[in-house]
Computed example of a mutant assay.
Amino acid sequence: MLLLASQSPRRAELLKQMGLVFQTMPVDLDETILSNEAPLDYVRRLACGKSALGWQKSGQNMPVLGADTVVVINHLVLGKPQDKADAQRMLRLLSDNIHHVYTGVALTTGEGQVYCVVKTQVKFAALSVQQIDDYWHSGEPVDKAGSYAIQGLGGQFVENIQGSYSAVVGLPLFETRQLLNKIGYQP
């Protein structure tokens, strides 16, 4: 059995897609970015922190997977929008631009911790004010890093990606399997 230290339905769905048996155990970790913290370091710290905290809470008898995803444009980390105006600001930044999505994954066991960070480049189409407004009213951007979901309605705005599609959704499948193999986890 594997524990997922997350309440993300997208990560749970991706683990199911991998055929893994798991339980979810959300953890509460301060996700404030540190001053001068690089996006790669930030997402790695959060993934490792969630996994380690989950391990501490779990009774320490099974592997714990933690993950986090951030959207970055021009060195600016875009988290989940605070409100409609914040989502519109983010979507205007992404419009007709290239951005990067960083997803960190960590596994903690009694033997220690292994982790990786996957970086994917995403090119957005030009968005009109009306498209941005309509997208906000769909409800999809509310709890998504960068205010969009590539696996949902937001996918229609993506011209192309270079890297891992599943990492943009929230969990890179290939790299997660590699980490599971590293710790000797056999489902």
Rank of each mutant, 00 (worst) to 15 (best):
H100I: 09
V114I: 08
V77H: 11
G59M: 14
N61C: 11
Y42V: 00
T69E: 00
A38H: 11
L53C: 01
D30W: 08
V122N: 02
H75C: 12
N97H: 14
C48P: 13
K119F: 11
M90E: 09
Y102K: 00
V101E: 05
L65G: 08
P26V: 02
D68S: 06
C48R: 12
E31K: 09
W55N: 08
L53E: 03
W55F: 13
A85S: 12
V118M: 06
S35L: 11
V70T: 12
L29Y: 02
A52Q: 13
H100T: 11
A126M: 06
K50Y: 03
H99F: 07
G49N: 06
R45C: 08
E111F: 15
I33L: 09
Q130D: 14
Q60E: 12
L107T: 12
A87W: 02
E31T: 06
A87Q: 02
V71N: 04
P39A: 00
L107D: 06
Y102F: 05
I73R: 04
L53D: 00
S95A: 14
Q113I: 14
T69H: 00
S51E: 07
N74P: 11
K57I: 10
L107P: 09
V72W: 04
D83K: 06
A52E: 15
L29H: 02
K123L: 11
P63K: 11
